[in-house]
Every structure is written in C-alpha cells, then in structure tokens.
Amino acid sequence: MALIEFTDKGLCCPQGKFYIDPWKPVDKALITHAHSDHARWGSKSYLCHTYSKPILQLRLGDNPYQTVEWNENISINGVKVSFHPAGHVIGSSQIRVEYNGEVWVVSGDYKVVDDGISGQFEPVPCNTFITESTFGLPIYKWKLPEQINKDIQNWILKNQEEGRTSVIIAYSLGKAQRVLKAIAEVTQNIFVHGAIYNIHATLMQAGWNLPAVKRVTNETKKEELAGSVVVAPPSADGSSWMKRFTPYSVGVCSGWMQVRGNARRRNVDAGFAMSDHADWAGLLQAVKATGADKVFVTHGFQAQFSRFLNENGIEAAEVKTEYGNDEEEGPTALTAAEE
C-alpha cells in the first residue's frame, strides 16, 4: 500500500483515511488551496490552512472546517501531517504526509517567487513529490513580479492619458489581489466586478490589508468610471457587462499571455504574462529542492515535464487528475486551466 494512492475520488492516504483535494465527496478532505478545482463541494469535513478557511466558507458554504498553521504538526490516524507555504494564492499550502519514516509532499499549485501576499514557497524535503505542471514547458519564463507590476502601471497611465478606462482581467482569487496592490500605487479610483468584490470583502473581513475598491453595480455612474481601473474575472471578458466602460482597453493577466498568439486570439489590447504558477525554471528548482527520488506530475504539461525529469535522472510519472478545469471561470479558453 502506497502512502498516497491515486483513486477515482482523488489523492488518497489510506493509512490516514483522508483525501487531499478530492474531486468527489469524501469523509475527510485536506485542501491545498481554495481554487474551485482543488476545493470541491460535498465532503463531510475539511482541513485547510487558516487563511483558506474564510474563502472556503464563501465558496462551499458552512461545513466542519479544521484549520492549521504552516509547519504545525498534526496526526491523523497515526499519519503525521503538516502544511507548508506554496506561494500560489492566499492560504495555498503544500501538504506533507509522513508515516513510518516515509515522506510524501503534495504541492497543490505553487510558484517559487514571492508575490508579497501568498507567502514564500518553502521547499520541503521528501521521498516522493507530487507536483503540478501547468506551465511545464521551457517557453514559460516569467518576468520578476516587480517588472510585471511596472508594465501594468505604465499601461494604466497610458490609458489615463488617452482617456480610457483600464479593464484588467484577473482571477478573482490570487491574481486579483496581486494586481490590486500594483494598481493602488498609481490610482485610488479602482472598481471591481462582483465576483472579485465578494472575495475582497471576505479577505478584508478576515483581516487582510487590501486596497480600497468599489463594486461595479448598475447604479455606478459613467462619470465615476472615466479613467478608472476595473478588475474583472475572465468570465466577464467579452460580455455585455463590459460595455459600460467604453471607451476602455482590456489587459489580461495570465501566464498564457506569454505566447503572442494567445493575446491576439482573445482580442485583448494588452497581455501580461503574470502567473500564480511556477514557470519552467521554477518547477525544476522546486523538484530538485525536495530531493525526492520519485516525482508524480499532475495537471498541465505532465507528459513533457515527466519525460524531461526522467531523462535527467529523476524518476517521474504522469498522473491523471481532474485539476486544472475550473468551473467557476467557465470554459474561457486557455485561461480556464490556470487555477
């Protein structure tokens, strides 16, 4: 019996009788982070990081939630479990599982650079590492967060000069919070879509210090919107909801914007290759830092990334999961797979 098995309900630890990020209802679910492809509805009880709880409550409703801090050791049916920062979004954690001296780490989603809000990714030594591979090709190389922020700020300033509203498309959990910090450095006139507002309000209530924003409603006046910055989720892009901002420019924050064709295909004015996932170098760095002698590769370019690891002396295999297709954002092309 392996410490963690891949079942049709998700990643299962039979010894501890719990699942990690299951995609079907189970008795006990350990949740790496609150994105809806990792945190699903219907389980009897949930264990997550303290920061994830308010968002889970918002998204999944009232359930029995147990919370832990990073690096806090707990025991579940004799299996030692601890959470460690994954740097993906607020509260996102890698989950370390230990039994009889054998250690597995489930990465969930992660990035290795510090975005100043999601915590600094912590390499956790282990025997077996289960990694994501959303951007597991060497064409994906991110600029430093400060540089992307500067690019976004320059774009906003240029739009203001030209009298256009800047509409920024970003995921409601993760990139929206990151991008708001950058926006607040150039303007106070910030509006957000309802979906982002809900998360924003929840996080503020939980004590997070985020920039002040206004919610776009049907009462919002055109004069207020002029020259403002609006943050909206991908589902809003191209919808009639956007019309009220005319004249506006659309900028999409997504790792997929790394490839010119993707920005063109979505018919956006600007694409910012900003991601909450590790780029190619980040994935390699993370895998090597764990010292794992066996790596399982999940959602993304798993075939390519695992082949590369195998050819470079790290035993790896791909695993099919149901992560990476998030229903909340709908099937909005490439970007839907990024959560």
Partner: peptide, 15 residues
Amino acid sequence: ESYHTVGDLAETIAL
C-alpha cells in the same frame, strides 16, 4: 513540444 504549443517557429526560438 514547445513549437507545437507556440505554433510559430520564430516565436518559439525567441521564447
């Protein structure tokens, strides 16, 4: 694989 994903040779090399 990279070329297949990018779809443009010049861009693949540049990336």
